[in-house]
């Protein structure tokens, strides 16, 4: 239990480092911005209670906002992500339900499941985030395109990260 928490904290730290010092600093084609840090929320165990997930998402968003000088933006988007995650997990649950100890990773449910799961949540997060940033529907379509392109980019990074770091051989 404790070792698991430590492992999550280490991965959180690594993701934050990469997000703040690498991804936030590089410009991709002018307006594409990947937010890989949400991977942390995606990979948290399924059985974590809803309220705790909300608190974690809130805290993570607040940390990101502190580093990007964008008060409330990431916080709000992370909350929406966590909120939709609870319902999405119910929606795409296997017929016999989740077993304890199962994690929302490809090694448990397959790559197709994970692709659907992660891209929906990343998409929701990004669309919310980009509109929260502009806070106006004046730039409706350009914001939408930015959100979609960035979602694709983040999703690719999510899949690569999971492939290299979370795809251990202890799959069932």
């Amino acid at each position: 239990m404790i070792s698991q928490i430590v492992r999550y904290l280490v991965s959180l730290f690594a993701l934050l480092l990469v997000q703040i010092f690498v991804l936030n600093q590089i410009e991709f084609a002018g307006y594409i911005r990947p937010y890989l840090y949400v991977l942390f929320l995606l990979l948290l165990p399924i059985e974590i209670r809803g309220w705790l997930m909300l608190v974690i998402g809130f805290a993570l968003g607040l940390i990101m906002d502190t580093f990007t000088q964008t008060p409330g933006m990431n916080t709000s988007a992370c909350l929406v992500l966590v909120f939709s995650r609870q319902y999405l997990l119910k929606l795409i649950a296997p017929r016999e339900g989740y077993e304890t100890g199962q994690l929302p990773r490809p090694e448990f449910f397959g790559w197709k499941w994970f692709l659907i799961y992660s891209s929906i949540l990343v998409g929701i997060h990004h669309i919310w985030l980009f509109y929260a940033e502009v806070f106006h529907f004046k730039y409706f379509f350009s914001t939408l395109f930015r959100a979609i392109f960035s979602t694709v980019f983040t999703e690719v990074l999510v899949l690569l990260t999971v492939l290299f770091f979370y795809n251990s051989s202890k799959a069932k």
């Binding site: 809130f58 409330g72 933006m73 916080t75 709000s76 909350l79 966590v82 929260a132 806070f135």
Partner: peptide, 27 residues
């Protein structure tokens, strides 16, 4: 779950709106 979500989201929006204020920014 819904209540906590709404409360935290309201707080996030408070930050968002006050942060969008062009001038002083408490955050």
């Amino acid at each position: 779950f819904l209540i906590i979500f709404v409360v935290l989201q309201l707080f996030a929006f408070y930050l968002l709106v006050s942060g969008n204020n062009y001038q002083n920014n408490k955050f």
